[in-house]
């Protein structure tokens, strides 16, 4: 399936603000951060440590609601400030796939079960979930390690299993938090290209938080955060050159 339609929004964040503490201890972690990602679009979020990238990612991941601002999944308003307009856990399960810096696999489940569980939680039968999990793992080149526990896989294999889990429920949004931090440059590029391919083929909007400037050419748009504020860079090519 190829979906590349800028008219179909995957996720939209409008003027997100996140404030921790109050009074003298108040810290503004994110201020007026907005982002619009269409289906099939791959977006990089850059910025130094402590700039608010993770705060933004956990907010749009419906894990850590913003103090104010709105988050839409597709065209549905999900969060208005801290007030949920839908069951957040259910929205995460059905619409969002997560990929982390560390693979974050469940240690007591085999590789295929780690992928399978995401689909079973979403109501799929065990047989159907296993079949799709194996297909995804085959697609990502880790099918031969399907029955191994995460501890028996290399870092790259674990990350590919995590990508398979993120894709399992055909989410409209994939959030990746420095997915290549633990990988060498060749593997990093492979994972970035994989995310781009998946976004384009499956029509998911992908937001990747990254420090890695070597593979920025795979992204459709770049955003940068600094001191909690977000700005969109004009173009990928321009950013890479500058």
């Amino acid at each position: 399936m190829t979906v590349r339609d800028s008219e179909m929004p995957a996720i939209r964040a409008e003027r997100l603000v996140k404030i921790y503490g109050e009074g003298n201890t108040e810290v503004v972690a994110m201020q007026d951060a907005s982002m619009h990602v269409n289906r099939g679009e791959v977006v990089a979020l850059l910025g130094p440590s402590g700039s608010g990238k993770s705060t933004f990612l956990t907010a749009v991941g419906l894990i850590n609601p913003p103090t104010s601002g709105q988050i839409f999944i597709g065209s549905t308003l999900v969060l208005d400030g801290e007030r949920p307009h839908a069951d957040l856990r259910s929205m995460r399960r059905q619409h969002i796939g997560f990929i982390f810096q560390k693979s974050n696999l469940i240690p007591f489940l085999s590789a295929v079960e780690n992928v399978q569980i995401a689909m079973e939680l979403n109501g799929q039968t065990s047989i159907a979930a296993r079949r799709r999990a194996l297909e995804l793992m085959d697609y990502l080149g880790v099918a031969e390690r399907a029955d191994n526990l995460p501890s028996m896989l290399s870092g790259g294999q674990q990350q590919r299993v995590a990508v398979a889990r993120a894709l399992a429920n055909k989410p409209s949004v994939i959030l990746a938090d420095e997915p290549t931090a633990a990988l060498d440059s060749r593997r990093s590029r492979q994972v970035m290209e994989l995310l781009a391919t998946v976004a384009h083929e499956q029509g998911a909007g992908v937001i990747v938080v990254t420090h890695d400037h070597r593979a920025l050419d795979v992204f459709d748009a770049l955003y940068e955060m600094e001191d909690g504020r977000m700005r969109r860079k004009k173009s990928v090519i321009h950013s890479v050159i500058s």
């Binding site: 856990r89 995460r92 399960r93 469940i106 007591f108 889990r165």
Partner: peptide, 14 residues
């Protein structure tokens, strides 16, 4: 198992 439980919640486990 607390990390796995947090992860399960993150991926939407009821």
């Amino acid at each position: 198992k607390i990390h796995s439980i947090a992860l399960l919640k993150l991926i939407g486990a009821p």
